[in-house]
Computed example of a mutant assay.
Amino acid sequence: MPHPDPVVDAATLAETAYAKVNVALHVRARRDDGYHALESLFVFAEHGDRLTGEASDDGAIDLLIDGPFGAGLEAGPGNLVMRAARALQSYLGQQRGAVIRLTKNLPVASGIGGGSADAAATLRLLVRLWDVRIEPEELTALALDLGSDVPACVASVTQLVTGRGEHLVRHAVDGLEGLPMLLVNPGMGVSTARVFAGWDRQDRGPLDAGSLDTLIEMGRNDLENPAILAEPVIAEVLTALDGAEGRLLARMSGSGATCFALFADAAAMARAAAAIAAAHPGWWVMETRIRSI
């Protein structure tokens, strides 16, 4: 698990739900269980949504939502934060509850694991808040029941992810961690199911994550083309990032619509961010770095 965030006050704890980015995403085949076999290198941004929580003694889970993208979410039982809290509470037989506040800084349904990261951060938060012990394998299994990306988001470190998200291997790539990373979303969410439905079912080969150069030259996102067919503006985002001076790599993350660019230095990233924000004031732009542990 990542190092815990600092205590907010004597009774309140906080966690960051770090944005997830697929540096490469290779779709290999459809499995017998209906899920797609994926090969991906996950990295995590230093920034994301923020969760704070206070324990309660009545067993209730109360969720408050605010933040720039909070209006797009409901705090009902279907919310991934609520589902994660209830799942952990049930698994542990925990009688305590919590009041959780989610500050939604990341766009919804945008290919950077916002909901999955929120669920994972909720698990980390409540384990600390309730002061309970749970084995990492148990937490991973619980996370997988919540969604394919949730187990990787629990640790929020650079890792190779295969299967439908259940096979995780910490994977350092020289020169990758700590790189400046610019995230850009054109102001829309994209249906993952719709993008997968548009995938052409062609296996274009395995992922080689042996080096940064190989990831740049040979890596790909197999969902990029079907996402662009669904929402052509994604191509405009990629063109804007591709044209940025100092850009090492520009690619779409997940099933879109958020795209990212890696830069050699923060100054080049800042110039690109300013230019894109000026040219496209309706787009969401976030300057960050790849999280290092």
Results as ranks from 00 to 15, higher is better:
residue 147 G to H: 02
residue 211 S to T: 13
residue 285 V to K: 03
residue 162 T to S: 15
residue 245 E to A: 09
residue 25 L to G: 05
residue 148 S to N: 07
residue 96 R to V: 13
residue 17 A to H: 04
residue 281 P to F: 00
residue 249 L to R: 00
residue 263 F to I: 08
residue 137 E to C: 12
residue 123 L to M: 14
residue 62 D to E: 15
residue 218 M to T: 11
residue 76 G to R: 14
residue 255 S to E: 03
residue 292 S to T: 13
residue 248 L to D: 07
residue 90 S to H: 09
residue 6 P to K: 13
residue 161 V to M: 09
residue 207 L to A: 06
residue 164 R to A: 14
residue 153 C to S: 00
residue 127 V to K: 09
residue 224 E to V: 01
residue 96 R to W: 13
residue 266 A to N: 06
residue 48 G to F: 04
residue 26 H to C: 07
residue 199 W to E: 04
residue 209 A to T: 12
residue 264 A to G: 15
residue 107 P to C: 12
residue 62 D to S: 13
residue 181 M to D: 08
residue 263 F to E: 08
residue 17 A to I: 03
residue 209 A to L: 15
residue 235 A to Q: 07
residue 261 A to V: 05
residue 186 P to R: 05
residue 189 G to K: 03
residue 281 P to W: 00
residue 90 S to E: 13
residue 108 V to C: 08
residue 145 D to E: 12
residue 222 D to S: 11
residue 85 A to E: 05
residue 61 I to N: 11
residue 282 G to T: 03
residue 62 D to W: 02
residue 242 D to A: 15
residue 27 V to L: 05
residue 180 P to I: 04
residue 156 S to V: 01
residue 38 L to D: 05
residue 175 G to E: 14
residue 26 H to A: 08
residue 89 Q to W: 07
residue 219 G to D: 10
residue 262 L to E: 03
residue 81 V to N: 09
residue 199 W to C: 07
residue 125 L to H: 11
residue 150 V to K: 00
residue 158 T to H: 06
residue 52 T to G: 06
residue 151 P to S: 03
residue 78 G to S: 10
residue 49 D to P: 01
residue 87 A to S: 08
residue 94 Q to N: 10
residue 263 F to P: 08
residue 8 V to D: 10
residue 257 A to P: 14
residue 14 A to V: 10
residue 276 I to E: 10
residue 58 D to N: 10
residue 158 T to D: 08
residue 269 M to F: 02
residue 211 S to C: 13
residue 97 G to W: 13
residue 230 A to G: 05
residue 7 V to D: 11
residue 293 I to F: 13
residue 175 G to K: 03
residue 253 S to Q: 02
residue 249 L to H: 03
residue 156 S to E: 06
residue 202 Q to D: 14
residue 288 T to M: 02
residue 204 R to Q: 14
residue 231 E to I: 01
residue 24 A to M: 04
residue 258 T to L: 00
residue 279 A to F: 04
residue 197 A to P: 11
residue 108 V to P: 06
residue 164 R to T: 15
residue 152 A to K: 00
residue 86 R to D: 10
residue 169 V to S: 09
residue 197 A to L: 06
residue 279 A to Y: 04
residue 41 L to S: 06
residue 124 R to I: 05
residue 176 L to T: 05
residue 251 R to M: 06
residue 169 V to H: 12
residue 75 A to R: 15
residue 168 L to P: 01
residue 277 A to R: 15
residue 88 L to T: 02
residue 264 A to V: 11
residue 109 A to P: 08
residue 75 A to S: 15
residue 92 L to G: 04
residue 27 V to Q: 07
residue 217 E to M: 04
residue 117 A to P: 00
residue 182 L to E: 12
residue 43 V to F: 00
